[in-house]
Design a protein around this nucleic acid. Structure first.
Length: 377
DNA sequence: AATGCGACCAACCGCCAGTTG
DNA sequence: TCAACTGGCGGTTGGTCGCAT
């Protein structure tokens, strides 16, 4: 059951992993990928079961893991997502790049739960404790635990009232940002949101949606899994997506775009805005590939139209433009390892900069709006 | 210095769902 | 169709550490 059959066939090690074991596993996966987990221990020369190897890789060895303590923003996001998703740790983790479900679960059980209780909020229902106690007064602990597991999505009005009663843990109510005209947030009530991006069936996109470097379709520029990881598992296909401008003329330097400006939908963005100055906000983590950084930023709840717009602009930037700290490559196998800078001048980057400040709140709200239109997940 | 306690977290357990033969 | 296998998930355990007494 819990231990797979392979675990019984031979005496396998249990408990903490030694540095030597870590090294063996890391080397093996780096070189060959994990493939079938059950075959990994044998191939890597480990006396472990495949399940244990998988866990070790996912929770500890994976190179894209973020180390260190959780930021207040991350904690707030976890609380928001938990209010929507319940104990769906893997789904919550999917919205926190670099964090594992185990890590989040531990944080929740050891820290956040306690904080919420101290502040008079029931961590299971996200309602004030008095209210939660009344509704579960006749239930046993086990019953409550089961109810927690079966927690249905609260209605959006429930969520508002719940958050309205909390104090410091309340997320600020960010006004919907003044979106740059290029950005349109899809209407989450549109049934089209129920569809997912056709990551493995790109036929839904215009064939003009090309990687400007190779002129291959975006989805062919890398393997589907990678593309999926970049776009994130929770993006909703919207009617907006089908209306995306497929005019990539701005990628062509022979058009009105030139070496000094980039034209996009009648707006001209000066490349000079990308030149680092004292107002530049540096985004990303040293030593991490820029496309990964962008994938972390974009992974998750960003409305698809915004993602694709961002992609388009990112791709535009990627086409031979190199400004100060460097161009950034977001999509399509663009592997520039560069540092991306944002100027405070350019409206697009102003918008992006704002998003870096508010995306957690905004997209968790957006997610709630969308998920409440689903009724359930 | 010894002990107790709580916090933290890595890893295991048990179950489930999907896949395969 | 069904059993075995596998990957993935959420719940739980147990070891370690730091701090208070």
């Amino acid at each position: 059951m819990g231990r797979h059959s392979c675990c019984y066939k031979q005496k396998l090690r249990k408990g903490l992993w030694s540095p030597e074991e870590d090294e063996k596993l890391l080397k093996h996966i780096t070189k060959y990928g994990h493939g079938c987990w059950s075959s990994v221990p044998k191939l890597a020369g480990l006396q472990r079961c495949g399940k244990s190897c998988r866990l070790r890789w996912i929770n500890y060895l994976r190179p894209d893991l973020k180390r260190g303590s959780f930021s207040p923003d991350e904690e707030n996001l976890i609380i928001e997502l938990h209010a929507v998703l319940g104990n769906k740790w893997s789904q919550i983790a999917a919205q926190l790049p670099g964090r594992t479900d185990n890590e989040i679960k531990n944080l929740w059980n050891s820290c956040i739960k306690k904080k919420l209780r101290q502040r008079g909020i029931d961590p299971n229902t996200h309602k004030p404790l008095s209210e939660a106690e009344t509704s579960t007064a006749t239930a046993t602990t086990d019953d409550r635990d089961k109810a927690d597991r079966d927690l249905k999505l609260p209605s959006s009005s429930d969520r508002v009232s719940a958050s309205g009663c909390s104090t410091e843990l309340d997320l600020p109510e960010p006004p919907l940002p003044n979106l740059h005209p290029l950005i349109s947030v899809p209407d989450p009530t549109t049934p089209a949101h129920l569809d997912r991006l056709p990551l493995h069936n790109p036929g839904g996109f215009s064939s003009e949606c090309l990687n400007p470097g190779s002129h291959t379709p975006l989805w062919q520029s890398q393997n589907p899994a990678e593309f999926s990881s970049i776009l994130g598992p929770n993006l909703f296909k919207s009617n907006v997506a089908s209306n995306l401008p497929m005019d990539f003329s701005y990628l062509d330097n022979s058009s009105t775009s030139n070496s000094n400006t980039m034209e996009y939908e009648n707006a001209i963005f000066p490349w000079s805005d990308m030149v680092p100055n004292k107002d530049v906000a540096h985004i990303g983590v040293e030593g991490v590939q820029e496309d990964l950084k962008w994938s972390e930023y974009l992974n998750g709840l960003m409305p698809v139209s915004s993602v694709l717009q961002t992609q388009n602009l990112a791709l535009g930037q990627s086409q031979g433009q190199n400004h100060g700290q460097g161009q950034f490559g977001f999509c399509g196998g663009l592997k520039e390892e560069t540092q991306f800078s944002i100027s405070g001048l350019n409206p697009w980057y102003q918008y992006q900069n704002q998003q870096f400040q508010t995306n957690s709140d905004m997209y968790s709200k957006e997610f709630q709006r969308v998920s409440s239109s689903f009724g359930h997940l």
